Computed example of a mutant assay.
Amino acid sequence: MHRRLGLWLERRLPLQRSVTLNQARIFIVPTLQGGILLLVALLILLLAINFDSALNYALGFWLIAMLWASVHLTYRNLSGLCISGQVGSLVEVGQMAEISLLLSAPRNQNRGPFEVIHKQWGVVSVAMNGPSVTVRLPLLARARGPITAPRFRIESRFPFGLIVAWSNLKIDVQAWAYPLAVQYDRQLAGGGHEAEQNPPNDPFYRAGSEDFHSLRPYVAGDAIHRLHWASFSRDQLVVKAFTDYQSGNDVLDWDQFPGLADEARLSALAYHSQLMTEQHQAYELRLPGTVVCADQGPEQLARVRRALAQFGYD
């Protein structure tokens, strides 16, 4: 039954970026109070017919008229209402993301409170007393990638609470979750055993083979041809350290983490991008099919995190 209802809703109310509610999209039913009032009105009318009482006729028809007015007024709250998705937030996996919906209408009228309902966030109430209002819906980021808004229910019981007008919608809007930052060692181009053992204190240094940089103590495993023989003749066992100099704009590259799975590489890139931002260092991100140009600061970190979140979903 639920599956058939879901398929019917998908056909009747498909996924859209923006939806304007009309007669075909709004459903109306009495609330519990409205149902009781309708039952009381019918009983009074039965008594009026049985005893031919004009006062009972008047009371019964007055109650039915109030219910009819409630139907009209409650329907008017949703009629013409436009619900459109806005840009979702960017959060780390495990945090609460936020999806924003814009509720707007061509006529500026008091439409009262609305309730946006789904089991993921419960009931979110929003009052619309002007031409537009924004409602923010929290969603848990369970995994890296897009966080899509589920099909939800929007309803109104204003003004008397006797009738509920509602619609079941699925809006094309999404937030994004970037991977958890996990520390993994980077394998720099030209890097080797020398850099791992005792790297020189130079921010632009990268172990290599082009230019002589300095002398350092011998470590087991160093190549024999790197020995500084002049020092060896003075009973000093040191080796020559060579370098490849790099620019201040460092590069975070997908290929710097060989042997890791794709998600682990993304987590490593998230960690090092955060580290470079904290160190006020400019850097560039290179992913297969994507390049984020070199820059620094929180804006660069946001661009990198969005690229990591969207990787594989383009």
Rank of each mutant, 00 (worst) to 15 (best):
R3Q: 12
R4N: 06
L7M: 02
W8A: 13
W8C: 07
L9P: 03
E10I: 02
R11P: 00
L13C: 11
L13T: 09
S18F: 06
V19G: 04
V19N: 05
T20W: 00
T20E: 12
A24F: 06
A24H: 14
R25Q: 13
I26K: 04
F27P: 05
T31A: 06
L38A: 15
L38G: 14
L39F: 15
V40S: 14
L43V: 15
L47G: 15
L47A: 15
D52T: 08
S53M: 06
L59C: 09
L59I: 15
L67C: 08
L73C: 04
T74R: 08
S79I: 08
G85I: 00
Q86W: 00
G88R: 07
E92P: 01
E92D: 10
V93Q: 15
Q95T: 05
M96N: 12
E98I: 04
L101W: 10
A105W: 04
P106T: 12
H118K: 05
H118N: 15
G122E: 00
T134N: 07
P138K: 13
L139D: 02
L140E: 14
R142M: 09
R142K: 14
A143C: 09
G145E: 05
R153D: 02
R157S: 04
L162T: 00
I163A: 00
A165W: 01
A165M: 03
W166P: 03
S167N: 06
I171W: 11
Y178W: 12
A181W: 03
Q183G: 01
R186C: 00
D202I: 00
H213Q: 03
H213W: 10
Y218P: 03
H228C: 12
W229Y: 11
N249F: 05
Q256A: 06
F257C: 03
F257L: 07
A264D: 14
L266P: 10
L266W: 06
T277M: 13
R286Y: 06
P298W: 04
R303E: 12
A309W: 10
D314G: 08
